[in-house]
Amino acid sequence: MPVKAAKSTIRLLRLALFIGMSLPLLGLALAWHQDRLGVIPEEVVLHSLGRWGLYALLATLALGPLFRLTHRLEFMMIRRQLGLWSFVYITAHLLAWAWLELHWVWTVVWLELSQLLHLQIGLFSWLLLIPLVITSVPLLQKALGMPRWRWLHRLSYLCAAGGILHFFLLARGFRAELWLTLLALVLLIILRLLDAKWLSYKAELQVRREQTPSRK
């Protein structure tokens, strides 16, 4: 049985997460302001935002398995916020590309988007996140119904896969972090599948138990 988490603990956890996840963003803004980001600061900002977005997305996906392993409800109580943070960073990454890299020169934005596969994959993955963000509102989550909500939010695995592919397509040479993110996603998918199998097995057991007349 899941351990019930105290309300005050949850509130504290959420606050800590909020502060923790705003730090990279503030750090980048400060470093930009102080001109500490090297010769091409635009590139550093662009790449850091993308990285943080992908890491936050993978961390969000890891919360489910962590909950199932530890039965600590806290992991589920911070999932919504962490998921939204990944959207914040990925959106900022997209804006940094259009603004810092291309200065909103639409002809170049269009030229790059129409010709570069990694940009198309990146934009598509970002678009996939939007319905997830909208349905993260509790009211809408209820309106949608839990089974449909769960089904919809499995898109987050596709987003992560898209993000990693986006990264793979533009990286120069061997990058350990690339393979690590891929490994993390594969592990998460395996855990997800194993869990689904285990759940359906348990459900089947339950059904059988109910169907078998009890001996008296």
């Binding site: 291309l102 030229l111 010709q115």
Partner: peptide, 19 residues
Amino acid sequence: VRHPRWLQATERRLGERAR
């Protein structure tokens, strides 16, 4: 003629912001 991973249509002159 593009590079497989990026376009060559624009460039960033070091020290300048806009491409």
